[in-house]
Amino acid sequence: MLHQVLNEFKSAQGALNLSDLARKLKVEQSALDGMIQFWVRKGRIEDSQLANSPALSAVKGAAPSACSGLSCAGSCPGPQGCPYVMEMPRILSYVKK
């Protein structure tokens, strides 16, 4: 089961939808999620929504600090970060050993 999940991640051709993957493997999506979390803990799958992922935090935190030396004015105002940053869906990707 666990290996099947990891193999799907390894051999996927292009983007896959998590609920499609659950149907393909004939597991409930929540169970699939549990297995994915197992691999995330083992460092074999990367989850974009985890706190330690560089994903969104980098965007939100970096823009204002990098701008501070410039007269970038309205481009990235306030401590809440740039208003143009969008919340993106959760992305899971295979990590090569």
Binding site: E28, S30, A31, D33, G34
Partner: peptide, 8 residues
């Protein structure tokens, strides 16, 4: 409704 995950 999420039996498979719960049964672990």
């Amino acid at each position: 409704a999420n039996l498979e995950r719960n049964l672990y």
